[in-house]
């Protein structure tokens, strides 16, 4: 549980850093190129299969734990004052995890599945090699190309241009987050991430046997400020950015 959990935490950091390119004001060129890299680089592809396995493993083991632990108390208490002795997050990891599993399914079908198997339109970017200006032109709706990425250089009277034709995942993202329901769903899911990691990150260390005053401070600090606050806030900023853009 802890092993897959911490691996998923490292994924979140990478995912966060990569997705920050959504905020770049270049009509999505950097983000779309990043999407190509993430789906073609052999190393990243290998790690991504490990990631899918980790998500499934983490979920299956989590569900198993919830049911096994329920069996250890067949008769429930009439009155149980959980808040007197433990945090809400620590007692509701199963519920939070279930929300996150639903979120992962929706998130993957919206973007990952669409990108790989669905119909994502292509976009053409002309980058002026002298001043770096990017010009954006949508490709015709029925346009298809063999490679995910085509790059050519063109000389025109106005100067040298690099022409980039790439699947426009950025459009999918920016259009998707025009829907208030999707934005609300994402924000709620990020709250679930926050509470899940507030307990989960430091709990993983305890499961590995790491619980010592010398280390707990830094573990709790990272768990709270980076994983429970920084990461969810950063991800939550993305749907909000496109909704209000």
């Amino acid at each position: 549980m802890g092993l897959t959990g911490l691996f998923l935490c490292t994924f979140l950091v990478v995912h966060m850093i990569g997705n920050l390119q959504l905020f770049k004001n270049d009509q999505g060129l950097a983000f779309n190129l990043y999407a190509v890299l993430m789906t073609t680089n052999p190393f990243i592809k290998t790690v991504s299969y490990l990631l899918y396995l980790s998500i499934i493993g983490h979920a299956v083991q989590g569900i198993y734990l919830v049911f096994k632990n329920k069996q250890s108390r067949p008769v429930q208490y009439a009155v149980y004052d959980g808040k007197a002795s433990s945090t809400w997050a620590s007692r509701n990891m199963g519920l939070l995890g279930t929300i996150l599993l639903v979120f992962v399914a929706v998130h993957l079908s919206d973007f990952w599945f669409e990108y790989k198997f669905g119909h994502v339109p292509y976009a053409t970017y002309a980058t002026n090699l002298e001043n770096g200006d990017v010009k954006f032109m949508p490709a015709p709706p029925d346009y298809k190309q063999f490679n995910k990425l085509e790059e050519t250089t063109m000389s025109t009277p106005e100067g040298q241009f690099k022409i980039t034709i790439v699947k426009n995942l950025y459009l999918e993202v920016s259009e998707g987050f025009k829907s208030p329901w999707l934005v609300i769903f994402y924000l709620l899911s990020m709250c679930a991430v926050s509470f899940h990691l507030y307990h989960g990150f430091q709990s993983a260390f305890k499961s590995f046997g790491i619980n010592h005053p010398k280390i707990n401070g830094i573990v709790n600090f990272i768990g709270t400020w980076i994983f429970a606050i920084g990461i969810p806030a950063g991800f939550a900023a993305m749907p909000l950015y496109f909704f209000f853009k």
Binding site: N69, S90, M93, H199, S203, K206, N211, H212
Partner: peptide
């Protein structure tokens, strides 16, 4: 048939002898 530990910390908080959670980490 005892359940599995999820590090909620309720055990130590309610322990009349205040046994520390660090014991669980040591056992792990």
């Amino acid at each position: 048939g005892f359940g599995a530990c999820t590090n909620t910390g309720a055990c130590s908080a309610e322990c009349p002898k205040e046994i520390s959670l660090t014991n669980i980490a040591r056992m792990n």
